[in-house]
């Protein structure tokens, strides 16, 4: 993974707030800046048509942070607040903005993290203790939530932090 990829893939950065070298700025800034730039690009046409749905991908850690991932938690909390702020500004134009907050999802990246543990099976079982549904989510389950938020089915929903996390953020 090169530095550029690391800049966006913040789960790779294990740092705590008390680490001397910890500086969340470049990384958190990258995540928020990319969100802002993308939104800025789509807002004018959405305003013109007086409708639109923006979905920013945050994370459950933006709601319930966890230790050793300070920059990641800060960036995702920032994405949630950014989405809410945008929702208050854009509601008048019929544009909805919501933040998707996935828990642990069964992706290649997640698998790589699990496999890096000495005993992957034990590690996964331990992680799943925090998940009332007792399993990782699937990519499709996150996609269905995005589809719902993109569709007119969610026409009165804006500014939410929308967890798809098997209940991880409940406790």
């Amino acid at each position: 993974m090169d530095d550029r990829e690391k800049g966006f893939n913040l789960t790779a950065v294990r740092q705590s707030t008390v680490d001397e070298g910890f500086s969340p700025l470049p990384r958190v800034g990258n995540v928020l800046a990319s969100g802002v730039l993308m939104m800025r690009a789509v807002i004018p046409p959405m305003k013109k048509q007086r409708s639109g749905s923006i979905i920013n991908t945050a994370s459950g850690v933006g709601i319930r942070p966890r230790p050793t991932l300070a920059a990641y938690c800060a960036s995702k909390g920032g994405v949630i607040a950014l989405s809410k702020a945008a929702a208050t500004e854009l509601g008048d134009d019929g544009i909805r903005v919501n933040a998707l907050c996935p828990g642990m999802i069964d992706t290649e990246m997640t698998r790589r993290v699990i496999e890096s543990h000495p005993d992957p099976e034990e590690a996964l079982a331990r992680m799943m203790l925090n998940y009332p549904l007792g399993r990782m989510g699937t990519v499709e389950e996150v996609a269905y939530a995005a589809l719902f938020l993109a569709s007119p089915e969610s026409s009165y929903i804006t500014g939410t932090a929308f967890p798809v996390d098997g209940g991880r953020t409940l406790h």
Partner: peptide, 15 residues
């Protein structure tokens, strides 16, 4: 579609 969503309160309130 919401098989991985539990315990949540979803605001349907126009913001």
């Amino acid at each position: 579609a919401a098989a991985y969503i539990t315990g949540q309160t979803l605001a349907v309130d126009g913001g």
